[in-house]
């Protein structure tokens, strides 16, 4: 569904969930993605994930390479490379990342861990 032309390069953003789009179910892809709509389900991506300021994820588990979050995310996030919380970000859940950036105004409720 949200997969485009089979480009599996894990650095490339090749999936967009546009504003107003609502997905219920797990998402799994090799590349990167951007979410401006709402996803209710687990997200697993080999590339970077961006959540726009209008984007929303409600899931038990989010597993990506790195994440830039400007919207609302409920669930545990694993982003081994880097996790960037922008001023409009609101996260409820635990995070595991090597590099954590929390900008002024970002809301983070949960624990943070560094991967072993």
């Amino acid at each position: 569904m949200a997969k485009m032309n089979g480009n599996t390069s894990d650095r490339v953003l090749n999936t967009i969930i546009g504003p107003g789009c609502q997905i219920k179910g797990d998402l799994s892809l090799d590349g990167g993605l951007r979410i401006d709509g709402t996803v209710e389900g687990n997200v697993k991506a080999g590339g970077p994930m961006t959540v726009g300021s209008e984007g929303k994820i409600i899931a038990p588990k989010i597993d990506v390479r790195s994440a830039t979050i400007g919207g609302y995310v409920e669930g545990d996030i694993t982003a081994p490379e880097k996790l960037h919380l922008e001023p409009s970000a609101h996260i409820v859940g635990n995070i595991i990342t090597k590099v954590l950036v929390i900008e002024e105004g970002a809301k983070f409720q949960g624990n943070s861990k560094i991967p072993e």
Partner: peptide, 11 residues
Amino acid sequence: IFLVPHNRKKS
């Protein structure tokens, strides 16, 4: 044509 920013800004 989509211009997709890698941050919270709208595409």
